[in-house]
Design a protein around this nucleic acid. Structure first.
Length: 630
RNA sequence: GGAGCUGUGGUGUAGUUGGUUAACAUAUCGGCCUGUCAAGCCGAAGACCGCGGGUUCGAGUCCCGUCAGCUCCGCCA
């Protein structure tokens, strides 16, 4: 293995070459060394430095650079080229007086050509310094160049602040990723994942991989299925999460597990939902939820400190689900601004407004949201809000302008003056404000006003990140469509011990030992203490309407495992993509994924999903139904 | 499954109540130019307006359908 050692020495030498003059962080040096693509002795593609890491201290030394041609400024006898590589940009200078042959070649350079150049780094004269460029104090006088590859004219500009159809960006994602701001996102993601791994390792967590080809289980999202060639008519499913495996690893005695895990769910997409996504998946034994809170808070603090230099305030706030719904109309409230929902049920009951009264009589709620300065809204704006409320399931939206003289509203006639004054007082409404009212089932009332609250949020909100734990979720909700109880979290979530007696008598009142981590109105993830005895687990399955046979067939292995000395355990999973998007300030997780899919779940670059050869289908014994057969 | 927004040279946009040669910027190509860094100046080429149908003497513009992208509801344990 002598050769290997020699290569290593060579690697280190080049590694050192970068280090002293560049004065860059360890992290950059590591990535720089990786980029050198060694060993590759004598090849034209060798580069000695990164474009963006050169500084005035390099002036006077000879360097070899390689990268892509960015902007070209041709002055006739003098050509400037912005050479771009992973690190940034360096200005190349081609001077006609320094060689006609080379200059001719430089004239033929076009956008996105790949070139290797060699020359001397020169300090710019004072009047030629470009303060908006990190390397703006120097430039490279090129005396030799090799065009390594030409390029067609790219379909869009390779530059930041791009305003181009997302269609194009996705179709040419490899070009989109050449843009510095996209590269930065990939780098941010890399650094975040590294921080997570280091942090988890520090606390003794073991990263264990789990299968991607597994079995379909009922409950939850639609599975992506993979047909089995060796078993006619049988299918694997891609995991919606490693949930069952990580619990089984607890039975195995791993005690502290984590994984950066790819997950798959065949459901409709959103800005923050892709069919395949990544979770930071964690499971622990003998490690109570208080420890988990603390662990996760420490992890978030580490991320924000290292990536943004921000010290998070700990511990994070905790808020019961009921309170979050009542005050903010959401189980993932955005606490960067106020605008809390206020219950006016007792006052509404005294009115003659039938809509309010019927809602209250059937056990519902009447709540109001104050929009400060909302009087700038037009009648059409309010109509739009009403439509929005209807789409969210409300029967309507009542509103009033607050003026010096009092209410201006279609519903004021149903209230006497005293009542109007009482409501105005409770809402702390000022002239110029608008009050919005929803009367409906408690949940609908909260949700609709919660959406309105987010939609009407002030433009300026608290810049500090607002983390919180939402706790005390109900264990079940009632599924109207399926006419049965359904797990709010997942069926392995442990009920609160004191609520166990009402499991069968009043399932909806049972609280779960479950919690969500929320940041700025985004659900980052959630977790729970799990059921670790097979008897309780069987009770839950039964409540969910699974027959004993089904339970045995689909979850037999879990119940069996739980009967072999399963430790008390629990854990949680965080959406990595959402976390990175929050760290990078992006609205959509597509921005922080290398090759994302469209809202219709297709990849515009590869064309996936696509039809396959008849032969492949034959092997799998799969027959595609005609339209008529359906 | 439903709703909304968008679709015009390579790219980003404009296009008045339907009216003849679809405008601008930028990129591209050619020419000039030795200190630019969104280089500048001169010139050229380039779109039958996502696709299909309809109304009309006449459609980028109006109507219907369809496709694609985005956002939201349902859905996502």
């Amino acid at each position: 293995m002598d050769g290997g050692n020699q290569e290593e020495v060579k690697r280190d030498q080049l590694f050192d070459l970068l280090k002293p003059a560049a004065g860059i962080t360890g992290n950059n040096v590591e990535t720089a060394a990786a980029e050198l693509n060694l060993p590759n002795p004598g090849a034209a593609v060798d580069k000695t430095h990164y474009c963006g890491l050169l500084q005035s201290s390099h002036a006077g030394i000879r360097v070899k650079l390689a990268g892509w041609v960015g902007r070209r400024r041709d002055h006739g006898g003098l050509i400037f080229i912005d050479l771009r590589d992973r690190s940034g940009v360096m200005q190349l200078v081609f001077d006609q007086r320094l060689g006609v042959e080379l200059f001719k070649e430089a004239e033929s350079l076009r956008s996105e050509f790949v070139i290797a150049v060699e020359g001397e780094v020169v300090r710019r004269t004072d009047e030629n310094i470009n303060p908006s460029l990190p390397t703006g104090t120097i430039e490279l006088y090129v005396d030799s160049m090799k065009v390594l590859n030409k390029s067609k004219t790219p379909p869009f500009y390779i530059e930041d602040d791009l305003n181009v159809d997302e269609n194009l960006r996705l179709r040419y994602r490899y070009l989109d990723l050449r843009r510095p701001e996209m590269l930065k996102r990939l780098q941010l993601r890399h650094r975040a994942v590294k921080i997570v791994r280091d942090y988890m390792d520090k606390y003794d967590f073991l990263e264990v991989e789990t299968p991607l080809l597994t079995r379909s289980t009922p409950e939850g999202a639609r599975d992506f299925l993979v047909p089995s060639r060796m078993h006619d008519g049988s299918f694997y499913a891609l995991p919606q999460s490693p949930q069952l495996f990580k619990q089984l690893l607890m039975v195995s005695g791993i005690e502290r597990y984590f994984q950066i895990a790819r997950c798959f769910r065949d459901e409709d997409l959103r800005a923050d939902r892709q069919p395949e996504f990544t979770q930071i998946d964690i499971e622990t034994s003998f490690f109570g939820s208080e420890n988990l809170y603390s662990l996760l808070e420490g992890l978030m603090a580490q991320l924000w400190k290292e990536l943004h230099g921000i010290e998070l305030k700990m511990p994070f706030m905790r808020m019961p689900y009921k309170e979050a719904m009542n005050r903010f109309g959401s189980d993932k409230p955005d606490l960067r601004f106020g605008m809390e929902l206020i219950d006016i049920g007792d006052l509404a009951a005294k009115s003659n407004f039938k809509v309010f009264k019927t809602a209250l009589e059937s056990g519902g709620s009447v709540k109001s949201l104050r929009v400060a300065g909302g009087s700038i809204m037009s009648r059409k704006d309010l109509d739009d809000l009403t439509l929005f409320a209807r789409q969210l399931g409300a029967r309507g939206l009542a509103w009033t302008f607050i003026e010096e003289e009092g209410w201006r509203s279609p519903i004021s006639k149903f209230f006497d003056q005293e009542l109007l004054a009482d409501i105005t007082a409770r809402m702390e409404a000022q002239p110029g404000d608008v009050l919005l009212f929803v009367a409906d089932r408690w949940e609908t009332t909260c949700q609709v006003l919660g959406h309105l609250r987010n939609r009407l949020a002030p433009k300026e909100t608290d810049p500090e990140p607002h983390f919180l734990w939402v706790v005390d979720f109900p264990l079940f909700h009632y599924d109207e469509e399926e006419k049965r109880y359904d797990s709010d979290h997942h069926p392995f979530t442990a009920p609160r011990v004191e609520d166990l007696p009402m499991l069968e008598s009043d399932p909806l009142a049972v609280r779960a030992q479950a919690y969500d981590l929320v940041l700025n109105g985004v659900e980052l993830g959630g977790g729970s203490t799990r059921i670790h005895d097979s008897a309780t687990q069987a009770r839950i399955f039964k409540l969910l309407g699974l027959t004993e046979d089904e339970t045995k067939e689909k979850f037999g292995f879990l119940l069996e495992a739980l009967s072999y000395g399963a430790p008390p355990h629990g854990g949680l999973a965080l959406g990595l993509d959402r976390l990175i998007a929050l760290l990078s300030g992006d609205e959509s997780i597509r921005q922080v994924m290398s090759f994302p899919k469209t809202a219709a779940a297709s990849c515009l670059m590869t064309g996936a999903p696509a039809s396959v050869d008849e032969k492949q289908l034959d092997e799998l014994k799969i027959h595609i139904k005609d339209k008529e057969e359906e």
